[in-house]
């Protein structure tokens, strides 16, 4: 395998549980940590709903996504970016989110994407 590192970004845009997208993206993110590649996660659109607290996913027979999101930091995935506009459109305050996130305005989102080598979308 080539030695040089590439920068990767995973873009999340879907709400949790109703589709497998959030879970799929998280599984890919955790796999990246094994390869020790620089990885950032961006939450846009309905994906910011993944960040709301107090999930009890067992009521619908699913695994708790927020518990797994909280694990990201343990895997050294700490570049978590959140679209400020998507939060405010949904009436979510940043202090409702327990993860260590960086809020981005729209121009900063464009800049983040511009600097990546590869982008995967979910």
């Amino acid at each position: 395998m080539r030695e040089n590192k590439k920068s990767f970004l995973i873009i999340n845009r879907k709400a949790p549980y109703g589709s497998s997208a959030a879970r799929d993206a998280l599984d890919v993110a955790l796999t990246f940590s094994v390869f020790e590649q620089p990885l950032s996660l961006l939450f846009m659109d309905d994906a910011v709903l993944q960040l709301l607290p107090n999930h009890q996913a067992n009521t619908i027979g699913q695994k708790n996504l927020s518990a797994n999101l909280a694990m990201l930091e343990m895997y050294d995935i700490d570049q978590l970016y959140v679209c400020r506009q998507a939060l405010s459109e949904r009436g979510i305050r940043p202090d409702q989110i327990s993860l260590n996130i960086t809020l981005l305005d729209t121009h900063a989102i464009a800049a983040l994407i511009k600097q990546q080598d590869q982008v995967l979308s979910f």
Binding site: R13, C83, T106, I109, A110, I113, V119
Partner: peptide, 26 residues
Amino acid sequence: MTTLHVINKTPSESSALRDSLIAMSD
């Protein structure tokens, strides 16, 4: 680095187009 943004939904069926326009650079 430049990006080709590929959109496969109508503007009404998802926010794909809207989000891609946010994410676009010169």
